[in-house]
């Protein structure tokens, strides 16, 4: 049978349709599995010997720790104040907020975070955080069983992450001044 150009074109179109259909099927499968593996994005960083994390959505910026003005007579957790995009923010010691924590190297980074009430503040940090994920189910389970601001969650590779709930952290901490002085 003589193959006409028209038939070639039709064959190519059919082949392309098959290809697209296969791709679409693969994407649909991926979408379904994604739902099963819903994740919670976090910014993970070291604090002393342990690994801590903040929800990535609360992180606004990571800045070098400089140009911080100490505030005499402020609460122990307050390192000082700094300017950020025209605002005056507090720089707070995360180790102090967590109740006294050793550290491996002097913090050199400030993480500007949203505290959960729409306000910003900066937390000190030993290194620039790494964006990564935790299984959403594990985060929700940890949130349900934990009353405090720090939730212990294991990653898929069995690493322990201390995930900080900023809203709870600031609700339970008093960062007010040392009024007696």
């Amino acid at each position: 049978m003589k193959v006409t150009p028209r038939m070639v074109e039709e064959a190519q179109e059919a082949e392309a349709r098959d290809l697209l259909a296969r791709r679409a099927a693969r994407l649909r499968e991926r979408g379904e599995s994604t739902v099963e593996e819903a994740v919670h994005w976090i910014a993970e960083f070291p604090l002393g010997e342990e690994r801590y994390a903040l929800p990535l959505e609360s992180l606004r910026a990571a800045l070098p720790l400089r140009m911080v003005t100490p505030v005499p007579l402020s609460a122990p957790a307050v390192i000082g104040v700094l300017r950020f995009q025209g605002q005056v923010l507090s720089a707070l010691s995360l180790a102090s907020l967590l109740g006294g924590h050793g550290w491996r190297q002097d913090p050199a980074v400030l993480l500007v975070v949203e505290k959960g009430d729409g306000e910003l503040c900066a937390l000190d940090c030993e290194a620039i955080p790494r964006p990564t994920t935790l299984p959403l189910a594990a985060v929700e389970a940890a949130r349900a069983r934990t009353e405090g601001a720090v939730m212990e969650i294991f990653t898929s590779d069995r690493q322990l992450i201390h995930l900080i709930d900023l809203k709870r952290l600031f609700a339970e901490r008093d960062t007010g001044g040392r009024h007696g002085r």
Binding site: P72, L73, T175, G176, G177
Partner: peptide
């Protein structure tokens, strides 16, 4: 001043 130091009376 931000909330964390607003109440410091000085």
């Amino acid at each position: 001043l931000p909330a964390e130091v607003r109440e410091v009376p000085s």
